[in-house]
Amino acid sequence: MVTLIYILVITGLILLISILDSLVYKIPFVQSFLMIYSFEVGTRKTIVLVTSFLGFLSSLFIDYHLHKQKKKQQASK
């Protein structure tokens, strides 16, 4: 469940930023969307991408442990 919420929040934020960029800079939506995730080494975007990837991995880790804990509680009943 944590992973699903993480994906929904990240998707919503990316869409919101893309829409705002396309309105402010008067560029097409697709172009503003692609500019967000252009991966260039040594830029601040790289830091954001790596951080968002680590956040995704941590949400998978949390979901795994919650699932494992739930199975353990069901087995003990």
Rank of each mutant, 00 (worst) to 15 (best):
L20P: 01
F53W: 11
I7V: 12
Q69P: 00
V2W: 03
L4R: 12
S38E: 12
L4Y: 10
Y64G: 01
K72M: 06
V41D: 08
Y6E: 00
L54D: 03
I10N: 00
L4G: 08
S76Q: 15
Q31A: 11
T43F: 15
Q73C: 04
R44G: 15
F56S: 01
L23P: 04
M35Q: 12
F33T: 13
T3Y: 02
L16V: 08
Y37Q: 07
Q73N: 14
L57D: 03
Q69F: 07
K68C: 00
H67Y: 06
H67K: 09
L8R: 13
L23Y: 12
Q73T: 10
M1L: 06
L49M: 13
Q73G: 04
S59D: 02
F61M: 14
L34Q: 10
G42T: 07
A75S: 13
L54F: 07
Q74T: 05
D63S: 04
I7Y: 04
V41T: 13
I10G: 00
Q74F: 04
I47Y: 06
Y25N: 11
D21Y: 06
K70F: 02
Q74H: 07
I7S: 04
L13M: 13
I47M: 10
H67P: 00
T51V: 14
L57R: 10
S58F: 11
K72H: 10
V9G: 04
T3H: 03
R44W: 09
H67L: 03
V30C: 07
I62D: 01
D21I: 03
L8P: 03
L49E: 02
I62G: 00
I5K: 02
K71D: 02
S59A: 13
I27N: 09
V9R: 08
V30E: 13
K71P: 00
V50L: 13
I19K: 07
L34I: 10
F29E: 07
L54A: 15
Q73F: 05
S18L: 02
L13Q: 10
I17E: 02
S32A: 15
K26R: 14
V48I: 15
I17F: 10
I10L: 04
V24N: 11
L34Y: 09
L49D: 01
K72F: 07
M1W: 03
